[in-house]
């Protein structure tokens, strides 16, 4: 099992919704990963589409540097509509 790769599983619950991460599993190849994902995560029709991605292929931002990484957005309150005062009586804004 040690050389059986780990896969991350994403399921689209219904048409129109995004694929969501549901968990992971081991499988020797992509095809078996898909079949295992079907049996493991959609036994009750929880999805209409499945993605499997080798866990090793995922690059993640580090929680330790989350401040430095996301800081640039912190002082840009003007990106939110609530930053602006709308004069009394202005409609459709």
């Amino acid at each position: 099992m040690s050389d059986t790769p780990l896969w991350e599983v994403f399921v689209r619950p219904r048409r129109g919704l995004a694929h969501t991460h549901v968990g992971s599993l081991h499988a020797p190849d992509a095809e078996l990963a898909l079949r295992n994902a079907r049996d493991l995560y959609t036994r009750r029709q929880e999805g209409v589409s499945i993605w499997v991605v080798p866990s090793a292929a995922i690059v993640a931002s580090s929680p330790d540097e989350k401040d430095a990484f996301f800081d640039p957005a912190a002082d840009k309150v003007y990106r939110h509509p609530t930053f602006y005062d709308v004069p009394e009586g202005a409609g459709h804004l």
Binding site: T4, D29, A30, E31
Partner: peptide
């Protein structure tokens, strides 16, 4: 067997599924 099959297929068609 599943691992051997996966390894063989990876050589033949490296793109996956």
């Amino acid at each position: 067997a599943a691992a051997a099959y996966a390894a063989k297929r990876a050589v033949r068609e490296p793109a996956g599924v």
